[in-house]
């Protein structure tokens, strides 16, 4: 008898169930990828009418952005500059603060302190951004004006500073996770050589966690580049081509809000500019994410 006995026979039902589960899981993963591609496709598709009127070269080199005026200019650079300046100010706050907090929590704080500080810190990230925006406008700006009387009521400095505070928990919690992932025996090796806590933190733990810390910085940059409400409320929504953080300016995202809230006729050039701006924003964050991915691959530490 060469046929398998009944108890070893192939059970089709089991394999059908397995297939259904697999298909369900694939669908869930596919949805998110498909959504991303759909967004990109729509942004590109809707931008095309604009680029029929305005050449890509003009779009990238014109230094004025006035699509809604009679004398319309379509240079994205003022918005890019505004985005870059507010992001730079935010990072100047978030990266040092976030890193220092992460080092403290991971290497110095006792278990008890860490467990009580972390939830409070994460609360910072849970505050609605519009609240931050008004906080920047009616608290931080007047405060800065006491130091710099000629500072205008809307400015990128105050928006950027507050945005930096908002990003701190993102930077610190991801960096801290990366530092805590450095195995204890590596730290012990450092202590056994006679190093202090601070030497161990800066010379062994931070380099060991560098890929994760870089990922945290990139996450922070992406948050800052895409942040909308704070800059829309506190930075003034005026497309100025300037790199001076004391001046008001619009960022890409705040322009989109501004225009999307107005009553532009569907299909007009002004309406299409939103998509071109959105596409630019998306490409910027894509570049940062790619850099972040590359950094974390390059500096990945294998223990």
């Amino acid at each position: 008898m060469n046929t398998p006995s009944n108890r070893l026979a192939y059970k089709p039902l089991r394999h059908i169930k397995e297939r259904i589960i697999e298909a369900g899981l694939f669908l869930a993963a596919f949805m998110s990828v498909a959504t991303t591609f759909a967004i990109v496709a729509i942004l590109v598709y809707e931008s095309i009418p604009l680029f029929k009127v305005v050449s890509l070269w003009t779009f990238l080199t014109d230094t004025q952005w006035t699509p809604l005026f009679d004398d319309a200019h379509y240079g994205i650079m003022p918005l890019v500059a505004g985005t870059m300046v507010t992001t730079a100010v935010a990072l100047a706050v978030a990266i040092p603060m976030g890193t220092i907090i992460a080092i403290y929590l991971s290497e110095f704080a006792s278990h008890k302190v860490r467990e009580s500080i972390k939830p409070v810190l994460e609360l910072l990230g849970a505050v609605p951004t519009v609240v931050y925006g008004y906080f920047a406008l009616i608290f931080v700006t007047p405060l800065l004006q006491k130091l710099m009387p000629e500072l205008s009521g809307f400015n990128m400095l105050s928006a950027g500073l507050v945005m930096g505070i908002m990003i701190v928990p993102y930077v610190s919690s991801v960096s801290e996770d990366a530092m805590r992932a450095v195995p204890m025996h590596i730290r012990e090796g450092s202590y056994a050589m006679g190093s202090t806590r601070f030497q161990t933190a800066t010379r062994v733990v931070v380099p060991g966690a560098f890929s994760g810390i870089a990922a945290a910085y990139i996450l922070g940059i992406s948050r800052a580049v895409g942040e909308t409400m704070i800059v829309a409320v506190a930075a003034g929504m005026q497309p100025n081509f300037t790199l001076n953080p004391l001046e008001p300016a619009a960022t890409i995202s705040s322009y989109i809000v501004q225009v999307a809230l107005g009553d532009l006729p569907h299909g007009s050039i002004g309406y299409q500019t939103i998509f071109a701006a959105g596409l630019t924003l998306m490409l910027m964050t894509l570049v940062f994410n790619v850099i972040g991915y590359w950094l974390s691959r390059k500096f990945r530490e294998v223990y």
Binding site: P183, H185, I186, E188, G189, S190, Y191, A192, M193, G194, S195, T196, R203, V204, P207, G208, F210, E301
Partner: peptide, 20 residues
Amino acid sequence: PIEVRMRISMVFQKPNPFPK
């Protein structure tokens, strides 16, 4: 203890080189 560790060094169970 840091002075002690500067005079009494240690090799661990699992090789633990630093990320350097």
